[in-house]
Amino acid sequence: MKQFIDFIPLLLFFVVYKIEPRMVDFAGHSFEFGGIFSATAMLILSSVVVYGILFIKQRKLEKSQWLTLMACLVFGSLTLAFHSVTFLKWKAPVVNWLFALVFAGSHFIGDKPLIKRIMGHALTLPDAVWARLNVAWIGFFLFCGAANLYVAFTYESFWVDFKVFGSLGMTVLFLIAQGIYLSRHLHDTDSAPTNTKSED
């Protein structure tokens, strides 16, 4: 469920982006609503609200959520300040590649890969499986970053659709593949002998 919370601001961003730009009067001021820049403002606002509610409810945010929020604030603010969508186009690639870097760094920093720190409380797997799973997440984030960058600067008219639904689709497919991979090893674990006494 947590993986899909990040998509709430993206979906709101998509809805506002698809609205035909129009001038709206509010509290004596006129502003444009609809299109990429008001969608960017919605992305920033909804991210602050969503993660703010999570912080109040949980008394904390995960590091990945802090990274996502900070990237949204930085790249979104730059987009609005300079009135250039180029900054926003770099948000998804940079965030994905930072995630890949963090997962890769966990192979060398600490006593276990990051995916084991995240899921180890719920699953018991051999260290080799955890290592392969962590590498799979590195590859996933590298691919997502590259795909977002390529589409953003090659198919600009399709970019926002891909940013929302392409990213969501890739995440769902990867989680399904991960579930299938884990189910094989969980079956092996369940069928293994219960005697775990180590040999002298």
Rank of each mutant, 00 (worst) to 15 (best):
G34R: 04
L88R: 05
V95L: 09
R22T: 14
F7Q: 01
V48D: 01
R132Q: 12
M42C: 12
G105K: 01
D111P: 05
F13E: 00
R59M: 13
A104R: 00
G179M: 06
I109D: 04
K18L: 13
Q58H: 15
R22V: 15
T86Y: 10
A39G: 06
G169T: 05
D6P: 00
V164F: 13
S30Y: 06
R184K: 13
G139W: 13
V16W: 02
V95Q: 00
F14Y: 12
P126E: 07
Q65P: 01
T68L: 12
D188L: 14
L125E: 03
F162A: 08
D127C: 10
Q65I: 03
S30W: 04
S38G: 09
K60V: 11
L123M: 15
A100W: 03
L168R: 06
Q58F: 15
G145A: 10
F87T: 01
L69I: 07
W159R: 03
W159G: 01
I180M: 11
T194Y: 12
F140G: 02
A27Y: 01
V94Y: 07
G34Y: 05
L98P: 02
H121M: 14
S46D: 04
Q3K: 07
W97R: 02
L142A: 14
G179I: 03
T196C: 12
V85W: 07
W90E: 08
A192Y: 05
A192G: 09
S198G: 11
W137C: 07
K197W: 13
M42I: 09
D111E: 10
D111M: 09
F82M: 04
V95T: 04
L182F: 12
Q65T: 05
F13K: 00
G179K: 00
E156C: 06
F174K: 05
I180K: 05
S183I: 09
G120D: 06
K89L: 14
L182W: 07
S157Q: 07
I180R: 05
A128H: 10
L10Q: 05
I44F: 08
P193L: 11
S157G: 11
L45H: 06
A136F: 13
I19M: 10
L11H: 07
R184M: 12
D127Y: 08
A122W: 10
M23Q: 11
V160T: 08
S106R: 03
L43I: 06
F143D: 03
H83F: 14
W130F: 13
L88F: 15
Q58A: 15
K116N: 14
C72P: 01
F13N: 00
V50A: 02
F7I: 04
L98H: 05
K197C: 15
L80I: 08
I118E: 03
S64F: 12
S167G: 15
K60N: 14
L182G: 06
A71C: 13
H83W: 10
F108E: 02
F153A: 06
F13Y: 10
A192W: 04
S84V: 05
P9N: 08
